[in-house]
């Protein structure tokens, strides 16, 4: 079970990685959307869930989500958007584009762990 954490903030990646560790999950990291797509190309078979920041330089999380859902190899990997853009329009747009879940910053570790479990199931159903 492996997460792909995509966020331009190293501190957020570290917090999410720690939560993944608590859930006995490994994690790959990407600091922008372009690196995320490169990581997916390398190891998409190992990835159980992508946690995707919305606001990133180079390529937004939303654009990565759209690219993923267009690609036969990645389209079934669940995606959780993690963002400060907590307005309804953003949430609706992400869900319509195929996001499985949505987490608004700031979040507690408990909220994050719960959302991850919601996305992949207690036993990692994906």
């Amino acid at each position: 079970m492996k997460l792909l954490i995509v966020d331009d903030s190293a501190v957020i990646r570290k917090v999410i990685k720690a939560a993944a560790g608590v859930l006995s999950m490994e994690a790959e990291e990407a600091q922008d959307g372009i690196e995320a797509l490169e990581k997916l190309a390398e190891c998409h078979r190992e990835i159980s869930l992508v946690l995707l920041d919305w606001n990133m330089p180079e390529m937004s999380g939303y654009d990565v989500l759209v690219e993923m859902k267009k690609n036969e190899k990645y389209k079934d990997i669940p995606v959780m958007m993690v963002t400060t853009e907590s307005q309804k329009t953003s949430i609706v747009a992400a869900i319509r584009a195929g996001a499985a879940n949505y987490l608004t910053k700031p979040f507690t570790t408990e909220e994050l762990e719960l959302k991850i479990i919601e996305c992949i199931g207690e036993e990692g159903d994906y």
Binding site: S9, V11, N55, T83, T84, E85, Q87, T104, K105, P106
Partner: peptide, 12 residues
């Protein structure tokens, strides 16, 4: 990140 999250929270 503190600035980012605070500004995001203010928007709500």
């Amino acid at each position: 990140e503190l600035v980012n999250m605070t500004a995001g929270s203010v928007k709500l």
